[in-house]
């Protein structure tokens, strides 16, 4: 479980997060939605410590994260897996080396065990046999999936995914959503997914947080999201031509 209380963050005069509090439960993927530039990535980076929030607190299962130094954070970081918006695979390493990297650094597994783990996670993201390809040889969707494989290689307790399905076709993006949800449920992971994809919202949106103007504007589930009369949320939800057409019918 992750708790955040009153997170605030500004870049210069640009106040991006204006006091956000929320609770993220294990075994559930919480979706953070909001327009482009609404601060979703910034919030996520504040939570994992890539940005230092100006004020506020982040706790991982009761362990206060914000006040720790870099060295003290390492124990919690080993329990975090993160998929970046840009995948952030290591260019100089092949797929297998990318996934092996955290294992080599931190686990005491034998060579064979590590190899098995790599093959297991690759199979999990439907990329079995692609071990020796380099990031430059992968499509955007494949990179995302390798990113997920690397994020789950260490069996994380907390999984952060920044736009796991941006730039993917609807079918692949549903596969990735389902994959994230399955992994979350199977391993009781506390998962946080940043997205602005309404397909994901309707598909896996058990718990949704809508960010608007640096604040938590709305919180609920995908059951509730279509029936709320929150104006800004409705504008966000029904912004697509597809929705418009469906609504007219």
């Amino acid at each position: 479980m992750i708790d955040i209380t009153d997170i605030r963050k500004s870049f210069g005069d640009n106040q991006v997060l204006k006091g956000i509090s929320a609770t993220f439960k294990p075994g559930v993927s919480t979706l953070i939605i909001g327009g482009s530039g609404s601060g979703k990535t910034t919030l996520m980076k504040c939570m994992v410590g890539l940005h230092q929030p100006d004020s506020g607190m982040v706790t991982y299962d009761g362990r206060d994260f914000t006040s720790l130094s870099f060295d003290e954070r390492i124990d919690i970081r080993k329990e975090i897996g993160m998929l970046f918006q840009s995948s952030a695979l290591f260019d100089s390493m092949c797929v297998e080396k990318n996934i092996l990297f955290p294992l080599n650094m931190f686990s005491d597994m034998s060579k064979a065990e590590k190899k098995d783990r790599v093959n297991f996670v690759l199979e999990r993201v439907n990329l079995a046999g692609k071990n020796k390809l380099f990031p430059a040889e992968l499509s955007g969707g494949m990179k995302k999936r390798v990113g997920i494989a690397r994020a789950i290689a260490m069996n994380p307790k907390y999984l952060f995914c920044d736009e796991p399905n941006s730039g993917l076709d609807p079918k692949t993006s549903i596969l990735i959503d389902e994959l994230i949800q399955e992994i979350t449920a199977e391993n009781n992971i506390t998962t946080i997914v940043v997205t602005h994809d309404m397909n994901s919202v309707m598909g896996i949106g058990e718990h949704i947080i809508f960010l608007h103007q640096g604040q938590k504007w709305w919180e609920g589930s995908n059951q509730q999201i279509t029936s709320t009369n929150n104006k800004e949320l409705n504008e966000f939800v029904f912004a697509t031509k597809l929705m418009e057409t469906l609504l007219k019918k």
């Binding site: 410590g49 890539l50 993160m82 970046f84 952030a88």
Partner: peptide
């Protein structure tokens, strides 16, 4: 390309 962030997240 956020690769350094990825290293830091892993606790490296």
């Amino acid at each position: 390309t956020e690769q350094i962030d990825a290293l830091e997240i892993m606790g490296i």
